[in-house]
Design a protein around this nucleic acid. Structure first.
Lengths: 112, 112
DNA sequence: CTCTACCCATAGATAATCTATATATTCGTT
DNA sequence: AACGAATATATAGATTATCTATGGGTAGAG
């Protein structure tokens, strides 16, 4: 009984960076956004989310700032940096390349 | 400097199972097949391949048999079992669902 | 005044992959 | 005969990403 994972390992950083191209957002909001846009297929657990955001901060791909939300709560808003935007491009390219490659393997294996 | 991975984590079992739908094959041959069909984008390292095959054996998704190759070398040939074929279906479905979900996130984040 | 939704964060476990190493055989070339 | 390249299997150990579980705290609704 294979338990299905909440996401495809290796794609979380890309999803976060991409989400931040819309607008600066706090962690909780990022998780909600990904969940909703994916129709509940992708769930970003808190234990994956916050370490990921730390990684992105350390790499300089996002920067953070404490602010108040519309609902009057304190939250840490993350903004994409120039380096982050560049990194997103790299990750998108690699991802698409991999998906295409996997597609070729899955297709060709059917024929023959 | 993000080093690009050799594969998308979580997809190796699926790729192996799918490769075996063509014909029984030995480990080395499976790795070569995936590498070639993917135009060298996907590389299955030995340290990933053999543990993966052990997993698949333990789960009963493949069975193994020692034989001689066309080039007169002893090798362990793996064959897909009925359970393995079923499992492949599950993994393909989940994978496609995830890819579609990721696609929705990547698309919607552009708009707005 | 209690419950739910909102919000952050970390420690520890689990799992998958990679790096490095070891062994062995066949075949072609020197 | 010696050597190297390609073929073939396998494991130990490190690394990394994710999940589970836990802890803290605030705002607003009922």
């Amino acid at each position: 009984m294979a338990k299905k994972p909440d996401l495809l390992p290796g794609t979380l950083d890309m999803l976060i960076l991409k989400t931040l191209t819309r607008a600066p957002l706090h962690g909780y909001g990022i998780a909600l956004s990904i969940k909703r846009l994916s129709d509940d297929v992708l769930t970003v657990e808190e234990g994956s989310l916050y370490p990921a955001l730390q990684r992105l901060l350390l790499q300089g791909w996002v920067k953070a700032e404490w602010k108040m939300t519309e609902t009057n709560r304190r939250a840490r808003f993350y903004t994409l940096t120039a380096a982050g935007r560049k990194q997103l491009g790299v990750e998108l390219t690699q991802f698409e390349q991999m998906i295409a490659a996997i597609g070729r393997v899955l297709q060709d294996a059917q024929e023959a």
